[in-house]
């Protein structure tokens, strides 16, 4: 049931290692406090298939690497008030973006990954969404409101940012955030 007193929060997992979500869960007992104030309306850890409307805060992990992800991100952006890039892959491209140095051609990337460097059964998967030419940080695709860098972003920092936002306080990352 929607609870009007609670902040509607979503989390999205794009091309990342799930470490950022782990960090989110690593807030430990602080999660219990948080749970009183938020309602998790969409997330890889809840069973909801479609990104809902009227989301207050969306945290996105991972870079935008394929067409489905790009579509989901754009869809989420429209339905979200505050969109947060969570973790280095979302903020910079990070490890997911390493392929960008290799080539801008999805085909070349796939060949490199699934044929040239395959030990057994070299074959390019076909039943998956098409790769974008480059894996991109979120803000190269949609407008992003806040950034929580880190690989992974520290749980304390995630908690601090969400806390500040819920209290309507400014978020100044000076001395707090660290790439890597």
């Amino acid at each position: 049931m929607p609870d009007p007193a609670k902040v509607r929060v979503a989390t999205i997992w794009l091309s990342g290692c799930s470490g950022c979500h782990m960090s989110f869960l690593d807030q430990d007992e602080a999660l219990i406090d948080l749970a009183q104030q938020i309602q998790l309306v969409y997330s890889p850890i809840v069973d909801i298939k479609v990104f809902p409307e009227n989301v207050d805060v969306t945290l996105v992990e991972g870079a935008v690497a394929n067409e489905d992800q790009q579509e989901l991100l754009k869809f989420a952006r429209v339905r979200t008030k505050i969109l947060i890039s969570l973790g280095d892959c979302a903020v910079t491209g990070n490890v997911t973006g390493l392929r960008n140095s290799l080539s801008n051609s999805p085909q070349a990337t796939l060949t490199r990954a699934f044929i040239e460097t395959a030990d057994v059964n070299p074959q390019i998967p076909t039943d998956v969404p098409a790769l974008l030419p480059k894996a991109l940080p979120l803000h190269e695709v949609v407008k992003v409101d806040y950034y929580i860098p880190g690989c992974p972003p520290p749980a304390g920092l995630i908690n601090w940012v969400i806390g500040r936002l819920m209290r309507g306080l400014p978020v100044n990352m000076e001395g707090r955030s660290k790439f890597g």
């Binding site: 910079t92 491209g93 140095s101 940080p137 803000h139 950034y147 860098p149 000076e174 001395g175 790439f179």
Partner: peptide, 15 residues
Amino acid sequence: ANELGVDHVQFEREW
């Protein structure tokens, strides 16, 4: 970058 609060890079990255 940390000290000055650079939490993202607004320009495209070069790779």
